[in-house]
Amino acid sequence: MSTQTLPYTVHPHPVTGIYSGKFGTWLFLASEVMLFGALFSSYVLLRVGAPEAPSPLHWPSHEETHLSWRIGGFNTLVLIVSSVTMVMAWASLKMGDFSKGRRYLWLTFLLALTFIVVKLSLEYVPKLRGGYVPAKSTFFSLYYTLTGLHGLHVIGGMVVIGYFLGPGAALWKRDPEYYTNRIECTGLYWHFVDLVWIFLFPVLYLM
């Protein structure tokens, strides 16, 4: 169907200096900044508005939330490593080494999976069982909404990476540069997901 040639899908536009996919990805990320920005701003508003300690509505300290910084910290490291493997995947493809790039992509995928499994099995499930449900307090409302949305982003990233490991990989044979570009765009998104977590971790686990 769309074999029709659109310009600048692979090569950068002579004036703007980027190819369309990358520009599109950045635009999408800009909207993501606003999405998480709104959530952070809600956090600040609710935090500032919370009453002082004796009130039942006071903001819980991290001793009261029973969120473990060890688990949170572990997941932080997992995401940071996955960012490195992601960018290495792109660098390897850029240097023409498909099988190395693929290995790094697999690593990224598995690290993302680790993140999700840890999140669910060590945090969500025990917390929910222990009565720390979203409705418990404004803090837990925020905790579940923020980490939940972030988790969905991680899963979204896994779907994309999975696609480029599976059916999407055929593109490498047809047009290696195009494939590399798409991995670059995936990487931009993936680093953004990491970047959001860098802010979420201290705000939710350490304050």
Binding site: T16, S83, V84, H191, I198
Partner: peptide, 18 residues
């Protein structure tokens, strides 16, 4: 976050004004 954006997301090398 700035490190991630500058290096991993290649902003350090990015010349596109857009």
């Amino acid at each position: 976050a700035s490190l991630v954006a500058a290096i991993f997301m290649h902003l350090k090398w990015e010349r596109a004004a857009n």
